[in-house]
Design a protein around this nucleic acid. Structure first.
Length: 488
DNA sequence: ACCGGAAGGC
DNA sequence: GCCTTCCGGT
């Protein structure tokens, strides 16, 4: 059996080159090519990916402590993971085993006492992916541990905004929506990828995303003003180099052929395709957070895109997601947005709402009186009965014979799906209609359009000795790029 | 639900 | 190396 779920498609993106984006991760997010089973997304990447996408908030969402997330619908997450990995028999038991596997690696740990709740150890994650950032040797990073009070283990020291703030008093704002990397001049390959520090949500405390001290921000902010390092904005050109071709449609968790029209769909999800290029001040981010944690308004007010990523606070969490079930299209999305953001408000607006991807925000919609989520059936942690993800990948044909022989996966699935309201169709319809014409997009402005659109960021004002050397490289590169830009 | 050992696949 | 699968134990 050979599973075409992802790998084959990865190699042959069925979309135009212009549509660079791929799934939420660049090369480094996948296993090194040298390793067996290469180019496969790792579970924690996948988890982050889900967490990044609004349409999956009913399934998994940031909640509680910083970096903490709760799997609201374990079965669904497992199912999605199974689809991704072409493992029809995947279930939460197995998935959780895989998650446990991360304990030792300290990428993840369990939040005890909270069902289906885990917590990322961001410092480890960053460390693993960005060796250039010598965090381990940085006393700054290891010293501070504001978010780990309580349940966490001593060895878990997530990189907190404060921490990064101490390192980079004010990171540039231009990073919003920027790609994670500037492709190094040294040629292709992960080694030449230079980390864009400014793209770290949890690192970019100087960004307008935070208007109050991170310590008051509470949970990991789902804020579109920045992109998650792993889920860096695939919509933005430059997110990938040309030879670092995206594998999957932006925002999609599955091979692009699962979707009717990836390009259209994905573009339609962009509140503002190039918002990252907007002047720093225009986001609602600057005043974000004033509302406190009890349900202030969010950035949608000022005509901001509905996308919000701010995770609900534990207490007020599921607010707003209850409405999701019925609506359709952008309207519903907006509704949800307005209802959801508990506290922070503001900064939500801009930033490519990436992540929505194909999903088409509409995805959730149209529950069509359909099925109950597994969690609901189980009476699990799910707090919002109608919020489960409706993004159904029905086409498992590529998942090899293994899947074809799996009634519990294809047949059962389809039966399940049948009771739903064909989200995909709904998508192409409703969302496609809202789609901005390509012609309305800003034209390329330089010989290398992709790169030219990547906002460049000035070097951090000061750096601790332990970080200086490696970052200096990045900075030099940026300066060079900046020069090029200014001349063009 | 959650844990972690063990074996095995890729 | 990173799971997936299975499983006995708590």
């Amino acid at each position: 059996m050979d599973c075409n779920c992802v790998s084959d498609l990865l190699l042959t993106p069925p979309v135009p080159a212009l549509w660079t984006p791929g799934i939420a991760f660049p090369d480094w997010a996948y296993k090194p090519e040298s390793s067996p089973g290469s180019r496969q997304i790792q579970l924690w990447h996948f988890i982050l990916e889900l967490l990044q996408k609004e349409e999956y908030q009913g399934v998994i969402a940031w909640q509680g402590d910083y970096g903490e997330f709760v799997i609201k619908d374990p079965d669904e997450v497992a199912r999605l993971w199974g689809i991704r990995k072409c493992k029809p028999h995947m279930n939460y038991d197995k998935l959780s085993r895989a998650l446990r596997y991360y304990y030792n690696k300290r990428i993840l740990h369990k939040t005890k006492g909270k069902r289906f709740t885990y917590k990322f150890n961001f410092s480890k994650v960053v460390l693993v992916n960005y060796p250039l950032l010598d965090m381990a040797s940085s006393p700054f990073l290891l010293a501070q541990n504001h978010f780990n009070s309580g349940s966490t283990t001593p060895d878990c020291s997530p990189v907190t905004p404060e921490t990064l703030q101490s390192l980079f008093p004010r990171l540039p704002e231009s990073a919003r929506g920027a790609s994670l990397f500037d492709r190094g001049a040294g040629g292709p390959g992960p080694e030449s990828d230079k980390l864009r520090l400014d793209t770290f949500p949890f690192l970019s405390t100087g960004s307008p995303c935070y208007s109050k001290p991170p310590s008051l921000l509470g949970p990991y902010p789902r804020n579109p003003t920045f992109d998650y390092p792993w889920g860096f904005n695939p919509y933005l050109p430059g997110a990938f180099s040309l030879n670092n071709c995206p594998k999957l449609p932006p925002g999609s968790l599955y091979p692009s052929h699962f979707y009717p029209n990836p390009l259209q769909s994905s573009l339609s999800q962009l509140p503002h395709p190039f918002s990252s290029l907007l002047p720093p001040g225009d986001g609602a981010g600057a005043e974000r957070g004033g509302g406190g944690q009890t349900g202030g308004s969010n950035g949608t007010a000022g005509g901001q895109p509905p996308r919000l990523c701010i995770p609900p606070y534990p207490g007020s969490a599921p607010l707003g997601r209850t409405e999701v079930g019925n609506g359709g299209g952008a309207g519903a999305e907006r509704e949800r947005a307005e209802a959801t953001v508990p506290g922070g408000g503001g900064g939500v607006g801009l930033g490519l709402g990436l992540g929505l991807g194909l999903s088409l925000g509409g995805v959730n919609l149209g529950n069509g009186g359909g099925r109950q989520s597994p969690t609901e059936r189980r009476g699990g942690v799910k707090q919002d009965p109608e919020s489960d993800s409706e993004l159904e990948i029905t086409d498992l044909s590529d998942c090899s014979s293994e899947n074809e022989n799996e009634p519990d996966f294809s047949v059962g699935k389809e039966a399940r799906i049948g009771s739903r309201s064909h989200p995909l169709e709904a998508k192409s319809g409703a969302i496609g209609g809202a789609l901005p014409p390509l012609s309305s997009l800003p034209p390329p402005v330089s010989p290398h359009p992709l790169k030219s659109l990547v906002p460049l960021t000035p070097p951090p004002p000061s750096l601790p000795p332990s970080l200086s050397p490696s970052l200096a490289l990045v900075d030099r590169h940026r300066e060079t790029e900046a020069l090029k830009l200014s001349h063009s």
